[in-house]
Amino acid sequence: MVSFYDSFMVLFEKRFLRKARQSILSKASGRVLEIGGGTGLNLMQYHFDIIDSLIITDIDIDKRLIKRVQKHPHQDKIKINETSVENLSFPDASFDTVIFTLVFCTVTDVNQGLQEIKRVLKDNGRLLFIEHIHPRKKSLRTIFNWINPVWKKISSGCNLNRDIKTSLEENGFTIGEYQYLTKQIFVGGCAKK
């Protein structure tokens, strides 16, 4: 069953998110960990010729993700793991690349989640991300703050007013690339420990 959130996001996906996924996820290489795989939209954007293995995590595995993995030509390189980003079940320094796309808006403890990513990422590894953020423009910020309580209820806990850049920096990541994918709301980039 398609959720309200999924239906709402279709427009953004068509207009620019698909292109952003293609650009950012093409940089994933080596042992890759994807946080919050959702329905598996990212699967189509990976370049498996430079990926040794891909583990996709989520706290609640979606049947659409399972079906996409089963039909994927590189399914032998892909595993699904039901776990929370705040409590990742992997050893330290396990991954060359960690990815999250539109995930940290729903994470309960952002700092704990980012510390876990930092723990499992190799010292020379890369964190690739796409998130929506609290808008820079004051009028939009006011609107987002006003609708956020209702939006959280109808969108499975999605927060409209988080600042991923500050959260990454406060948790010891250095941001190498950071770009606005729209004028105000979506960003993408790359960070290192």
Rank of each mutant, 00 (worst) to 15 (best):
P73G: 02
P73C: 12
L127G: 02
L160G: 02
G176P: 03
Q184K: 02
L17I: 11
D58P: 09
Q22H: 15
E170W: 09
E116I: 03
C105Y: 08
I133M: 04
T101M: 00
T101Y: 02
E82H: 13
Y5I: 00
K77P: 09
E13T: 10
P135Q: 05
E82S: 09
R141T: 12
E34W: 06
E169F: 08
T101K: 00
V85Q: 04
S89Q: 15
V2G: 01
R31S: 14
K193P: 10
R31D: 13
G36P: 03
I24F: 11
L41A: 04
I164F: 10
D96H: 05
T174C: 07
G157D: 10
Q179E: 10
N159A: 12
L121Q: 05
V187I: 14
K193G: 08
Y180E: 04
S89Y: 10
K137A: 11
A191P: 04
G38D: 01
R15Y: 06
L25I: 12
L140H: 08
F173S: 06
N148W: 08
I55V: 14
L43D: 00
E170Q: 15
C190S: 07
L65C: 08
Y5L: 02
L17F: 09
S53I: 07
S7H: 10
L17C: 09
Q184S: 03
T142N: 12
Y178F: 10
I164D: 00
F144Y: 13
K137H: 12
G30P: 11
I154Q: 08
K183W: 02
L41P: 00
L168C: 10
A93D: 12
I133R: 00
I50A: 09
A191N: 09
S53G: 10
S84T: 15
I35R: 00
A191D: 02
V98C: 07
F4P: 07
A191W: 00
S156K: 15
I24Y: 04
I130Y: 01
Q75M: 11
K118D: 09
S84H: 11
G125K: 06
F104D: 00
V110F: 15
L128S: 03
V10G: 00
S23M: 07
S139G: 06
S139C: 04
E131H: 01
T142G: 05
G40M: 03
K63N: 14
K193H: 09
H47S: 13
P149D: 01
N42Q: 08
G189M: 00
L88C: 10
K77I: 11
V120D: 00
F173H: 08
I61V: 13
I117Y: 03
N42L: 01
F104N: 00
T57C: 13
S29I: 05
V10Q: 01
T97S: 07
